[in-house]
Amino acid sequence: MSEVLLQLEGVHTHIGPYHILHGVDCAIPAGGLTVLLGRNGAGKTTTLRTIMGLWQASSGRIRFDGLDISKAPTPDIARAGIAYVPESMAIFTDLTVRENIVLAARSGPVDSGRLDWMLGLFPALKRFWNLPAGNLSGGQKQMLAIARAIAEPRRLLLVDEPTKGLAPVMVRSMIEAFRALKAAGETILLVEQNFYAASALGDHVLVMDDGRIAHSGAMSDLVADPVLQQRLLGLSLDAHQ
């Protein structure tokens, strides 16, 4: 068993009058990629935003490497080593690709070796290096958003639906990039609706339903069990290949 890097214990989150998370319990091991699956509205994005402090947990505890971050402000959580890539990507479209990367590296210029590694993950960014980020395709913007998140070393990446709306060729490129991130030892918590991409990448899987974790285990076990896929997700991997 890998050591637990992030742990949620009985986490509830309210947004205005709405009770979204109903006691989330889960553990994210250090190293590898954990996929958070679930139907629309299950609470997946709320879980990521609660971890990041963008929405405060109403109750429960969130521990990161043993440190209680349940009530910590978002900047402190980021400084602790957690990066968040929202579904909206949150890039600066009027700035160049280079400027987007420079702004993401808050502690100073990006190390040249790290920059070469990042551009190796996402070669398209090198081609558009000095052009406005608004010129990028949807998939390329998503790649830039991820590159911004890893411009400095991070201990945990939270990524929300990186393949949403992408053409199949871009989905395959994104899968290869995440495989390279895994090989580099990054710890990733990934929300993903594309079960094919999720099954290709996940070491561990959490399935959320109605604001709770309904299933936790090895991705390989879920991939091998069409009945479990149908019960938890209402789909099967065969239908998404």
Rank of each mutant, 00 (worst) to 15 (best):
Arg231Glu: 15
Gly234Asp: 00
His215Thr: 00
Tyr196Arg: 15
Asp203Arg: 07
Gln193Leu: 01
Phe195Cys: 10
Ile213Gly: 05
Ser199Gln: 12
Leu233Tyr: 02
Gly202Lys: 12
Arg231Asn: 13
His204Asp: 15
Ser216Ala: 15
Gly217Pro: 05
Val207Asn: 02
Tyr196Ala: 14
Leu228Trp: 00
Pro226Gly: 06
Asp210Cys: 12
Leu206Ile: 09
Ala224Gln: 12
Ser220Asn: 12
Asp203Ile: 03
Gly234Pro: 05
Ala200Met: 15
Val207Ser: 02
Ala214Thr: 03
Leu233Gly: 00
Asp225Cys: 07
Ala224His: 09
Leu222Ser: 08
Gln193Pro: 00
Ala198Cys: 09
Ala197Ser: 14
Leu222Lys: 05
Asp203His: 07
Glu192Ser: 00
His204Ala: 11
Tyr196Gly: 09
Met208Phe: 04
Leu237Asn: 03
Asp238Arg: 13
Leu222Glu: 07
Val207Leu: 01
Leu222Cys: 10
Met219His: 07
Leu233Asp: 01
Leu232Ser: 01
Tyr196Ser: 14
Ser216Ile: 08
Ala239Phe: 04
Gly211Asn: 01
Ala197Trp: 14
Asp203Val: 04
Leu233Glu: 03
Ser199Cys: 14
Gly211His: 00
Arg212Gln: 15
Gln229Gly: 07
Leu201Val: 09
Phe195Gly: 08
Leu232Ile: 04
Leu206Asp: 01
Gly211Ile: 02
Val205Gln: 06
Val227Thr: 13
Arg212Ala: 13
Asn194Trp: 10
Ala239Pro: 01
Ala214Ser: 14
Gln230Trp: 09
Ser236His: 06
Leu237Phe: 07
Ala239Trp: 02
Glu192Met: 02
Val205Thr: 11
Ser216Glu: 15
Asp210Met: 14
Leu228Gly: 06
Leu206His: 09
Asn194Thr: 09
Tyr196Thr: 13
Leu235Lys: 11
His204Lys: 14
Asp210Arg: 14
Asp203Lys: 07
Ala214Phe: 01
Leu201Asp: 08
Asp238Gln: 13
Met208Glu: 06
His204Asn: 15
Gln193Gly: 01
Pro226Phe: 03
Leu233Met: 12
Asp225Trp: 06
Asp225Ile: 02
Gly211Tyr: 02
Gly217Asp: 05
Leu237Glu: 03
Ala218Glu: 15
Ala214Gln: 07
Ala218Val: 12
Gln193Glu: 10
Met208Gly: 05
Gly217Arg: 05
His215Asp: 06
Gly202Trp: 12
His215Arg: 03
Gln193Asn: 05
Leu235Phe: 05
His215Pro: 02
Ile213Trp: 04
Leu235Tyr: 05
Leu232Phe: 05
